[in-house]
Nucleic acid binder design. Structure first.
Lengths: 200, 200
DNA sequence: CGACACATGTAAATGGTTACATGATTTT
DNA sequence: AAAATCATGTAACCATTTACATGTGTCG
């Protein structure tokens, strides 16, 4: 039973553009959807074999383009059917794991600085995402003869932009609170230390 | 080497409140941080053993409260130190996997309806999250004698609220576009069918 | 010719869930 | 007494990454 591995569909999606090798697939994935998806070789190569076994893709010519052996796969009719079938299926929910929020939730048990630094790092990361998205948008919108898929690509980009903006706004609301807490604790630090010392 | 399993720290965090059993931990986690974290028994019980082996928690009394055997764990000094150490450490980035966006990205290769339905389902889910957050906020803010951790809990709640709002706004921007696409395709459907038939 | 990118993979380990097994206690 | 819930766990399986192995072409 296939539980929640969508690598198959992701690969089929890109093979529907044109035949590609595992190496190419990884590069194309990194270049186009790395904002919300990633694949490693350890997944790609075995799954390509599986696609071939299941008749969803066909291994195309061990061509030696320039003398080098190359193993490209092309999508089959059944592969396109599977891609379409998956697109109509509901999204499988995945367990949530947000380490930043876990740290914030338990921030009381660490130094005040720790929480501030965690959120500052997160903020920097999200700001760089936002910048990156702006560049992508420029490039996509500058294309003269846009692909038919372009509106969909822009939607995924819009999603990223909105999330990054929401995250940045959260950071800007959270940081003053976290910093204030750090300062009041710093103010009390000497008295807390003496109390603790007195107990021994 | 511990790569990215934060179950240890999550459990230590809750054990720092009070001693608990594996069963209790799961319930407490589901009740407090399920918005951004989840743990299954298959993780909890083995990790509790591991915490004991490493001296971060101690198995407290196989007490028979009411005749029933119960296995509670309490955090040790070293456990608190580990919790604090982790809080000061940078968040480990995790690979992104957003199946909804993968579907939107490849929506061109499915029926127009498929994409609309996927986003509508996502919208309903996010709306219910938003409602849920509002309830939680009411409850947390109604408490007379707030815990010292409350500000941090509210921050994680705020994060969820902002993300849900951003997601809803994205859905509301995306749905008209997706629906429009569906209608123009429906308008062209007969001509496309005949073209396809003509090729055979 | 040495360094580096191209290219294809595999093995091992980690991370994590699901489904099951087992038995006591409470509720109906 | 039957059913539901409490409670503790384990085994199997799926998902996924990391690190390695291996060889080829290209560029300075």
């Amino acid at each position: 039973v296939a539980l929640s591995n969508r690598t198959k569909q992701a690969l089929l999606g890109f093979l529907s553009w044109r035949p590609m090798s595992g190496y190419e697939l990884r590069k194309v994935i990194a270049a186009s959807i790395s904002n919300f998806w990633s694949e490693s070789y350890g997944q790609i190569y075995p799954i390509l074999r599986q696609l071939e076994r299941e008749g969803l893709a066909a291994r195309s010519s061990r061509m030696t383009a320039g003398g080098r052996p190359r193993c490209t796969y092309r999508i089959t009719g059944r592969g396109r059917a599977e891609l379409s079938r998956w697109l109509a299926e509901p999204v499988e929910p995945r367990p949530k794991r947000n380490e930043l929020l876990l740290k914030v939730f338990f921030a009381m048990h660490g130094t005040p600085d720790a929480a501030v630094e965690a959120v500052e790092r997160f903020r920097a990361e999200q700001a760089s995402h936002a910048e990156h998205y702006a560049l992508i948008r420029q490039k996509l919108e500058a294309v003269k003869q846009p692909a038919a898929d372009l509106p969909y690509w822009l939607l995924t980009l819009d999603y990223g932009e909105r999330e990054a903006a929401a995250h940045l706004a959260w950071c800007d609301a959270a940081l003053p609170l976290l910093r204030a807490r750090g300062e009041t604790e710093a103010g009390n630090a000497s008295s807390r230390r003496s109390r603790r010392a007195a107990r021994r």
